[in-house]
Amino acid sequence: MTDQESFATLANFARRLRSDPRYMSYVLAKYQQQENIEDKDLARELGTLPALAARLALCKRPASSSGQFAEEVREIADYTLTDEAQLAGILRQVDTLEKLAGRSTLLAGSGAEEHLPIPYAGMLAAARDRDEPEADESSLADEERPEDEA
């Protein structure tokens, strides 16, 4: 089995786990949907090798409500050579949109949405908004990182 075949094998397996919310594969798939990122661009978006992006997808999804969240994100970031601030942001974004979507679905069934001050659809759209300058995101991530350059 060549390097490429091994990578393809793991990437296929990761694709299979996209429907399982316990895995990062699910989170990344949701993130790709929200941000309109194609599979081939995901590794570059994460700033890592495609093989390591596949590994990332095979990791368990840290629960953002857990006290271990930061440590678990750091562990995944170390293992996949990704940026922990970016990973944490992706996880929180997907969590938030899932929760909003869940509440929106519940409310849609109850008729309670009429009493909401802000339409949930608008909130979802705002949360997904990618028109803001991307530099803001990266500079924020940089601020969260420790000084580590020699």
Partner: peptide, 12 residues
């Protein structure tokens, strides 16, 4: 430092 070097190389 390692992660940043990898990011610099591979990030869009």
């Amino acid at each position: 430092r390692i992660k940043k070097a990898v990011q610099r190389k591979y990030k869009i």
